[in-house]
């Protein structure tokens, strides 16, 4: 197929969980894509955008625009950052008309990872295997900005050994909300608590999801409430079968 795909790693994956980036890379390559990883990439600008600092967000959006201009597609292992580029860049750059075309082009070719694997690359066989039960959390941006709902489930259904047990409210926000999680930590933790109750009620071995922000929030709350056994995985890790070399607690 030889689609030239730019991998937007995201700042959180870069800093906290590089193995998610490598899992995404492996999946894209096994789907037959030529993957490029622009080395100077950093952040999509969402923290500034959602905090009301438009100029700060615009500067970073323009940087992303430049870095991924020559790719056929841009793929990100995050519905949140993918949604930022696809659903918000055009609006964010509205007062810079000289970049309007580039913003529209970039938005149209940017995909969340599972959405891309199912709908563009049409990945048939996934490398991973997972012996056990999982439950899937639908992250808000992926779900409501990009329509990511069936794609991860369709891919997970191909993983040998894996059994999906849906929680009661998989679409309920985990309470992360970017800077909200720090500014209103107390409220954020309470929302996370409801999510954790829902997850543990399923009795699944692991909760799987597509956004690292929600992962850190859910895993952080699970551990604080004394749950050391429920694993928390990014969907790319499970699909790619990335070895859990340094113990994903």
């Amino acid at each position: 197929m030889f689609l030239k795909v730019g991998l937007f790693v995201t700042c959180l994956v870069d800093l906290m969980r590089p193995r998610i980036g490598f899992a995404a890379l492996k999946l894209l390559e096994s789907a037959g894509c030529e993957v490029v990883v622009p080395e100077a990439q950093t952040c999509c600008g969402q923290p500034g955008y959602n905090s009301g600092d438009r100029p700060a967000a615009q500067a970073l959006a323009l940087k992303v625009l430049r870095e991924f201009d020559d790719c056929d597609y841009v793929v990100s292992p995050s519905g949140s950052c993918g949604g930022m580029i696809r659903a918000h860049y055009v609006e964010l750059l509205a007062e810079l008309p000289q970049h309007a075309d580039a913003a529209r082009r970039l938005a149209a070719k940017t995909y969340e990872l599972t959405d891309f694997l199912v709908n563009v690359a049409k990945l048939e066989v996934v490398p991973g295997r997972f012996p056990g039960t999982i439950t899937y959390h639908d992250s808000c941006s992926g779900l409501r900005e990009l329509g990511v709902k069936t794609q991860p489930r369709a891919l997970l259904a191909k993983v040998p050994g894996l059994e999906l047990k849906e929680m009661a409210t998989p679409e309920y926000c985990c309470g992360f909300g970017g800077t909200f999680s720090v500014k209103y930590g107390e409220i954020s933790s309470r929302i996370a608590e409801r999510k954790c109750e829902d997850i543990t009620t399923t009795g699944a071995d692991a909760v799987v999801l597509g956004d690292l922000g929600c992962m850190l929030n859910i895993e952080g709350r699970l551990r604080r409430r004394g749950d050391s056994h429920t694993r928390v995985y990014h969907v790319a890790e499970v699909l790619a079968g990335v070895e859990d070399t340094d113990g994903n607690r």
């Binding site: 790693v9 994956v13 870069d14 800093l15 906290m16 969980r17 590089p18 193995r19 980036g21 490598f22 999680s181 720090v182 930590g185 107390e186 954020s188 933790s189 309470r190 996370a192 608590e193 992962m215 850190l216 929030n217 895993e219 952080g220 709350r221 551990r223 604080r224 928390v232 340094d246 607690r249």
Partner: peptide
């Protein structure tokens, strides 16, 4: 953050 949650530690090297 840590008032009501832990923070999973980073892996140690960046992507």
């Amino acid at each position: 953050w840590t008032e009501g949650r832990d923070m999973p530690a980073p892996q140690g090297k960046t992507f």
